[in-house]
Amino acid sequence: MSDRQQQDALSRTALGVFRLNGQFLAVSEKLAEPAGLTAAWWQVLGAVLPEPLPVAGIARVMGITRQSVQRIADLLVREGLAAYEPNPAHRRAKLLTPTEAGRAAIGRIEPGHAELAALLARELGGQEAFDETVRVLERLSGALDAVGARYTAPEAP
């Protein structure tokens, strides 16, 4: 593969992922709205469903800034959908955890989420194809993590 082909592949990949991000955000807003959530609120609540996490940990998992997560976490706490609890590992970095109201709101998203998952699986050609799509995206994310950690942009001419 030539340098030009590799650059074209990178550009097409980036544009495709940017488009996917917009598409996922749009459909997530539709799914979250009946539950009284936004896509961003759902994203942060979803990150802490398995276990409470500090804001910095949520930001790492989601790949966004700590400040963005902090703003949303504070709103979720204010709305009674999440709560801060002490962090035994770090006195100042409290853990965010969903409240029963937060879990109930996420639960109201489940039927639409299940329907969308089924529609996507069907559109992609079945569950096996859907699983392969997920594997490719996870592989791309892992590769970008590895490359990004050691990549430094060349100096401008």
Rank of each mutant, 00 (worst) to 15 (best):
P98V: 04
A149M: 12
P54A: 15
F24W: 15
L95E: 00
I106V: 10
R92E: 09
S28F: 02
P52L: 09
K94F: 05
G112Q: 04
L120R: 10
A143P: 00
G125H: 09
A105K: 00
S68R: 15
F24C: 11
A117L: 15
A9R: 09
R92V: 09
A82Q: 00
R60Q: 10
P157F: 10
P157V: 08
A101F: 03
R12A: 08
E100Y: 04
R139I: 01
W42V: 11
T97D: 07
T97K: 08
T97H: 04
G112N: 06
G102A: 04
G126W: 08
P54K: 13
I106A: 01
A73Q: 03
I106M: 11
Q23I: 14
A39H: 03
A121V: 06
L140T: 07
P50M: 04
D74M: 02
Q23H: 15
G36F: 00
E123I: 04
T99M: 09
L144H: 04
A47R: 08
T65W: 03
G112C: 04
R92D: 06
L137P: 10
L25K: 10
V17Q: 13
S11F: 09
G126R: 00
A32G: 02
G80F: 02
R91S: 13
A143S: 12
L25H: 12
A118W: 09
D3M: 14
Q5Y: 08
L95R: 06
P50W: 06
V44M: 05
P88K: 03
V61F: 10
L144D: 03
P157H: 12
E51Q: 11
H90D: 05
L20S: 10
A93F: 12
G16Q: 06
A114K: 10
R103W: 05
A83C: 12
L31G: 00
P154W: 02
S68E: 13
A83K: 14
R103A: 05
A121F: 03
R12S: 03
Q67S: 11
T133K: 00
S141F: 15
D131I: 00
A146M: 11
R139D: 14
